[in-house]
Every structure is written in structure tokens, then in C-alpha cells.
Computed example of a mutant assay.
Amino acid sequence: MALAVFDIGGTSVKYARWQSDQLSQKGSFATPETFEEMVLAMKERLQQIPKVTGVAISSPGAVNVAARQIEGVSALGYLHFRPIFDELEAELGLPVTIENDANCAGISEMVLGAGQHAKHAVFIIIGTGIGGAVFIDRKLHKGRHLFGGEFGLMKPYGQTILSKLGTAVNTANAFSQNTGIQLTGIELFARADAGDEQAKQYLAAMYDSIGLTLYNLQVALDPEIVMIGGGVSTREDVITNIKKRLYHYLAAESVEEIMPEVVACQYQNDANLIGAAIHFEAVMK
């Protein structure tokens, strides 16, 4: 089975051909401003990826597969609350599946990546915001309102959501506002690496917020593995620091024996594409 796969993001749309568990003919285009322009762009790429039998899509928003529409909110409002499955199938002339982008990334890790051996798992992706996915008995748990895995909305200290406390982008913004030194997340890490104590303190607060959130998830769900994705997960020290915090919080309550495996994800930029393709294959069996 050969598929065309699309990963719709706020600024760009990635695409590729998928066959025999491999991506090829990868490319991207700027995210269109309207649904009609999105359809045209997809049609153009399908002409470049011939002989496919379906289209698999990773999308922002709460994807309601049963209702065949995308609910919730995202930066691309034109995707929401329309019969998007039916519209795309009619326009593209092929069967179409759509799943949430974080869910797709989690699926890629569970099937082909770091979570292959796991029965119960949590996947958390740390980018500009924080999202993720929950897998129970290797099945994706989406929840009654399709909000399963929206870890960025958790409030580790009861007031501010994790997406504001637990990302390098927002931690760097807080550093800049409080010090007057404008820098990016990458630059904040660089300052800490160079020995800047203030930068280290800001990153320590970020790790604390993530570790406390994972503590709450661990005692609530008891997964055997926590997989961390997003650009920061490529730094070994990030994984190490998060792991230390999680163990500390568990040990403080004398339940360190339930400490899960904490690992970086295997797939990064391709995770959403791969997960979308795997989702298609599972749905169409």
C-alpha cells in the first residue's frame, strides 16, 4: 500500500509518500490561508506522488473520527466544524483519514519507535506549547471530549498551565521579561551551558514544572514508559533533568518503585507523517 501523507502545521505543511514503513519524496509548502487553497495545494502534491491508494493526514485540533470533522480550536480555524473528511475525499478522489498531530506522533513511537515494547505509555511533546497522547493497553485514549493528552492545560502549581511553564520558548520569554536580555530558547540553553547561574535557575524551574506534571500523570495512570518529543528532547541533559525531577517527587511520597522508563522519542520531524500513515493502515484494515 502506498499513501500520500500530509502533516498540517501552523506555518507549513509537510508531505511525503509512504510505502513499506518508509517515507520518501518528502517536501513542504507554506500553510495556505483558506481551505480551498489547502485543497489545491494537496492536489498539486498528489500529482507529484503518483500511484497512491489513500491520503493520511496529521492535523491540529480535536479530530472526531466518528463525526468525520475536526473540533476544538487551533491556529487554522478553517479546518474546524466542517465535513472535512467528506470534502477531502470528494476533492482528492481517494479515501482520507485524519488524526490529531500529537496523537499521530505518539502512534509512530508506539508502533515503530521507543514505545514498541510498552503496554501502557504516556507521550509528551514539548514545543512552543505542550501536547501529548495516552496509550492504555496499547490503544490510544482520546477521552470523552477528545482532550486526552492535552497535558499543556494541566496546572502543576494550581494557577498557570504547563504550556506556559514547561517550554524553552516561554521560559526564555520569562527570562527576557525579567532581565531585559532578549533571547530564544536555544540561546537560554547556551547561556546555561556556559555556566550562567540565572539561566540555569530558569531552566531548573522549567524542569520542575514538567517533573511535577509527570508525577501527577504517573500516580494517576501508572504508565511503564514516558516518551518525550519535541526539539528539546534531542538534548540528553533535558531527559536527564526531567527524569531526576520525576524520581524526586515519587521518592518524596515513598513510591519510587513506580518510576517509569523516561526516554527521548526516536522520531522527530517525521513523527507526525509516520503516525498518520500507520493510523490510515489501521483504520483501513
Rank of each mutant, 00 (worst) to 15 (best):
F151L: 13
A174Y: 08
V169P: 05
Y157P: 00
T184E: 11
I181T: 14
V169R: 00
A192H: 04
G195T: 07
L183A: 03
V169Y: 02
Q198P: 08
N178L: 14
M154L: 15
G158H: 05
A192R: 10
Q177H: 14
G158N: 01
K142R: 15
G149S: 02
G195W: 07
D193M: 08
M206Q: 01
A174K: 15
L165V: 08
A194K: 14
A168V: 04
R138G: 13
I181F: 07
G152F: 05
R138S: 13
A190Q: 15
Q201D: 15
A174V: 12
F147C: 11
D193F: 07
K139W: 07
L188K: 07
I186P: 06
Y202I: 10
I181N: 12
M206C: 06
A205Q: 14
N173Y: 05
L188Y: 01
E150T: 05
S163P: 02
G166D: 01
Q177K: 15
K200Q: 15
A194C: 02
G180L: 04
T167E: 05
Y157T: 00
T171R: 06
S176C: 12
I161K: 05
S176V: 13
A199D: 03
P156D: 12
F189W: 07
K142M: 10
L140T: 12
Y202F: 13
H145Q: 07
N178T: 08
R144F: 13
S163A: 02
P156H: 01
T167N: 07
Q198C: 03
L203A: 11
L140R: 13
A168I: 02
H145P: 02
Y157K: 02
Q182F: 15
Q159M: 05
L188F: 03
E197C: 08
G149I: 03
L203G: 06
